[in-house]
Simulated scan of single mutants.
Amino acid sequence: MVGTSPVGLHRVIEPVGVLPQAAQRLDSRPEIGPDEVRVRVERLNLDAASFRQLADKHGGDGAAVRTEVLEIIRTRGKMHNPVTGSGGMLIGTVEEVGPDSPLGLKPGDRVATLVSLTLTPLAVADGLADWDGRSEQVPCAGHAILFGRSIAAVLPDDLDPQLSLAVLDVCGAPALTGRVVRRYDRPVTVAVIGGAGKSGSLSLAAARRAGAVRTVGVVPTDAERERLAAAGLADEVALADARDPVALAAAVGAALGGPADVTVVCVDVPGCEHGAVLSTAEGGTVIFFSMATSFAAAALGAEGLAADVTMLIGNGYVPGHAAYALELLRGEPAVRRLFEARLAAD
């Protein structure tokens, strides 16, 4: 393969001229160009919003979910949910490295990709036969292609690969949360909507480490409230439906004594934008770290509320984010217990 692009333009089949993430279809052939890397795929991790949408669509029918995921990959040459617009990430073993690849990988490295499956050429060879369609983590045999500007992390030897995959899937959330909290020149309060989930629990730990004076984790069920309270990752745990703006703002206000300076949205359902804005103090910051977020709803909702807040969309990348998230997992036993319990339940 000649004339490769470091951002993968040469892999776009249609429409020509767009980047791989925006493409309808990618070329997933295994032959690599001089700056590409081919990975033998072992496991996919579907992002939470995508998996929830598929599971809800098919009423929890795992076989139907598996069939649709296979069809998406077959027709698009990547895992790119057409409804949520999101994908996930993968782990695997490096098979071949082009001579001009700048990624620093070598054959035999076990890696996790830190770029979305929505822009990663992917082919499945086993029909996902070992996946029951009922969990975000998908055992898989196939191959994927990394570009010159892709990002991947070599998996650490001291952690179970499935645990590493779960952490690295959301590693941008705690890194961005910590960065935002540290930028304030005063102690701030932080609300994490979806605090008992993967990105939520890591974001709570990151906020505390970054100097947040008080934190609240907001969850939708009594079971999650008990789980997060037992973990001790938040100063307060509040129960509220994030899709109910008034109830969410009231819950955050009661827990913190007023709206939060920083609100982090980590839930995987749509309709949480207005509640997040309403829960945030004037001059505060809202971080939307969910693929279910609607930019229009967030922007127009804030305008309609006359809310003077800065809104950030977490793009999943902050320099050093993978190492930071893994260090949080190692250094925060409560976070690790939550992740391991989630994996056991799946």
Rank of each mutant, 00 (worst) to 15 (best):
M1T: 09
V2N: 14
G3M: 12
S5P: 12
V7C: 15
L9D: 14
R11G: 02
V12W: 10
I13Y: 09
P20C: 01
Q21N: 10
A22I: 00
R25V: 14
L26W: 15
D27V: 13
P30F: 15
E31C: 13
P34Y: 01
V39E: 05
V41A: 13
L44D: 03
D56Y: 06
G59H: 02
G60Q: 00
G62M: 01
L70A: 11
L70R: 08
E71M: 13
E71C: 08
M79C: 12
H80M: 10
N81M: 07
G92I: 15
E95G: 05
V97I: 12
V97E: 07
D109P: 00
T113V: 15
L114G: 03
V115K: 06
L117G: 13
T118R: 15
A125F: 12
G127Y: 09
L128D: 04
L128E: 02
L128C: 05
L128Y: 10
D130V: 07
G133K: 14
S135R: 15
S135E: 14
V138T: 10
P139V: 02
A144L: 06
I145C: 10
I145M: 13
I145D: 07
L159V: 14
D160W: 06
S164M: 05
S164A: 11
A166T: 06
G172Y: 12
A173D: 14
A173V: 15
P174I: 02
T177L: 00
G178P: 06
G178I: 02
D185P: 00
R186H: 11
T189N: 11
T189F: 09
V190K: 03
G195N: 10
G197M: 00
K198Q: 10
A206F: 01
G211R: 01
G211E: 01
V213P: 09
R214F: 13
G217M: 04
G217Y: 03
P220M: 08
A223Q: 03
A223F: 00
R225N: 04
R227H: 09
L228Q: 04
A230W: 04
A231W: 08
E236Q: 12
L239P: 13
D244T: 06
P245K: 09
V246L: 01
V246R: 02
L248R: 01
L248V: 01
A249C: 05
L256D: 10
G257F: 08
A260S: 07
V262H: 05
T263D: 02
T263W: 02
V264E: 01
C266V: 00
D268W: 04
P270Q: 04
P270V: 06
C272F: 09
E273R: 07
H274P: 02
H274D: 11
V277A: 04
S279P: 00
A281G: 04
G283K: 12
G283L: 06
G284E: 01
M291S: 15
M291H: 14
A298Y: 09
A298Q: 09
A298V: 07
A299V: 07
G301F: 03
G301E: 01
A306F: 08
T310G: 07
N315M: 13
G316N: 03
Y317N: 05
V318P: 02
P319F: 06
H321D: 11
L326W: 15
L326V: 14
E327W: 12
R330E: 06
G331L: 03
G331Q: 04
G331S: 15
E332H: 03
R337H: 06
R337L: 07
L338G: 00
L343G: 06
A344R: 15
